[in-house]
Design a protein around this nucleic acid. Structure first.
Length: 415
RNA sequence: GUGAGUGUCGCCUAGCGGUCUAAGGCGCCAGGUUGUGGCCCUGGAGAGCGAGGGUUCAAAUCCCUCCACUCACCCCA
């Protein structure tokens, strides 16, 4: 028997209400903030990701689905959503539009990881990207949009964490200071942190081990080493967030896993326990477009994992509106009645009335049972009698009232 | 890549060496009305116990290996 590959899953009909719910809220937020949808291909030239995400990140080093296609091209299934959007921005000369260009996507993401709660090999993210302006007001707007989106989902108990990790001018200096600090504590670090110290010092800050947390808590903070421009930028972002009444908390230990981030970084997390805490995150990536071959173009974005959102919606028992279903069920008895039923179903559908027609030779009882479990509001019953007289029985399934009406009147009655 | 836990009908669960040709609940199908649902009653279909190997007179029940799932670490959405 075949099963879905490890780390993937089927989204069955009973789950779909969650997905539609979230998609609808995403679309709504994007309309409110002026973002337009973009869909990029599921795979790209491998270099697009290795250059943007960073050669030394885990994503590039060991999590990408990379293969050579039949033409000998190195291809990678997208492990994140931002780089493809930036690629499209460059490829289609979107810098000719009024800046910033605001785009959003909903897309499957592929990473070869060990599956776990809220972590899959194929998962879905939506994200929005605002490309072409370095105004801190844009940072605030993106953060606000992310926050308001979660509010609109009716998710509660979320926290908004904010930090600034500087730019390519000031970050190297900070990293040197950070390394110095950690070098003096190297004996007390966990083994993971010892390798982080060499490979990715920023990540030292978010180690979960208690002994490392203590060290991280009193580590030098990036916001204390920002260059004047970054400092000014960060202060204005914070001021705008206050203007917007957003309950953000500056967290100097917040860093992000992708190399392209600069200045503002932020995450939204549920305040509950659990391992996969981050629902969504984002930040500025002012150097990425240039890195990909464009002119220097500031930008920022946000992305969130849909499966994780669903996990939290369930945890919080957030009511989800049910998906619409056909309103009318047609039951029939006998071959002649079935002929009528087929024609009737077609006629109703042509007029925009959703119909489920009983299929197979089931007893009326079985047909009504089916109508009941499907939740049809009305059942139309056609038997020999009705065929002869050109009528139909219209049964209201909630009140169990039914009456015989001429078939020509049915449409009228169903409105 | 590392660690821990789990693996019995579609779902949930019982069984923990012989009474298991595996039991129950949900769901599904059918009957209880000759043309009528939701409740109730009755019946039916549906697993040979993740896979393979071993121990034993005898294994779903013990052992081994593998696989899968789950959770955690790593990393991230």
């Amino acid at each position: 028997m075949y099963r879905a590959p490890r780390g993937t899953s089927d989204i069955l009909p009973r789950e779909q209400a969650y997905w539609r719910y979230i998609e609808q809220k995403v679309v709504n937020a994007c309309q409110l903030y002026g973002y337009e949808r973009i869909d990029a291909p599921a795979f790209e030239d491998t270099k697009l990701f290795s250059r943007s995400v960073g050669e030394d990140t885990d994503i590039v080093e060991k999590q990408m689905y990379t293969f050579e296609d039949r033409g000998g091209n190195k291809i990678t299934l997208r492990p994140e959503g931002t780089a493809p959007v930036c690629r499209a921005y460059l490829e289609h000369g979107l810098h000719n539009l009024p800046q910033p260009v605001k785009l959003y996507y909903i897309a499957s993401i592929f990473r070869y990881e060990r599956p776990q709660a809220g972590r899959y090999r194929q998962h879905y993210q939506f994200g929005f990207e605002a490309i072409g302006d370095d105004d801190p007001a844009l940072d605030a707007e993106v953060i606000d949009m992310a926050w308001q989106f979660f509010q609109s989902l009716n998710l509660r108990h979320l926290s908004l964490q904010l930090n600034s990790i500087g730019c390519k001018k000031c970050r190297p200096g900070y990293l040197a200071i950070l390394k110095d600090y950690y070098a003096s504590h190297t004996r007390d670090l966990c083994s993971d942190c010892k390798t982080r110290l060499k490979r990715n010092p920023l990540r030292l800050l978010d180690c979960k081990k208690p002994q490392c947390q203590q060290i991280a808590n009193s580590a030098p903070r990036s916001i204390d080493y920002l260059c004047p421009q970054c400092d000014e930028h960060f202060n204005r972002v914070k001021r705008y967030l206050e203007l917007l009444d957003l309950p953000f908390a500056v967290n100097h230990r917040l860093v992000r896993g992708l190399d392209y981030y600069t200045r503002t970084v932020f995450e939204i997390q549920p305040e509950v326990e659990g391992a996969q805490t981050t629902l969504g995150g984002g930040g500025r990536y002012d150097d990425l477009i240039e890195e990909l071959g464009g002119k220097p173009t500031p930008a920022l974005g946000f992305a969130a994992g849909i499966e994780r959102i669903i996990l939290n919606l369930k945890k919080q028992n957030v009511p989800i509106p049910p998906l619409p279903r056909p309103q009318v069920f047609i039951a029939h008895i006998g071959d002649k009645a079935r002929d009528e039923a087929i024609k009737l179903a077609a006629a109703l559908r042509k007029n925009g009335i959703g119909v489920i027609e009983a299929i197979g030779n089931k007893s009326l009882k079985a047909q009504l049972r089916q109508a009941n479990t499907l939740g049809a509001h009305h059942t139309v019953i056609i038997g020999e009698q009705e065929v002869k007289t050109g009528t139909v029985i219209l049964r209201d399934m909630t009140t169990a009232q039914q009456r015989t009406i001429p078939i020509v009147q049915l449409q009228e009655e169903l409105r």
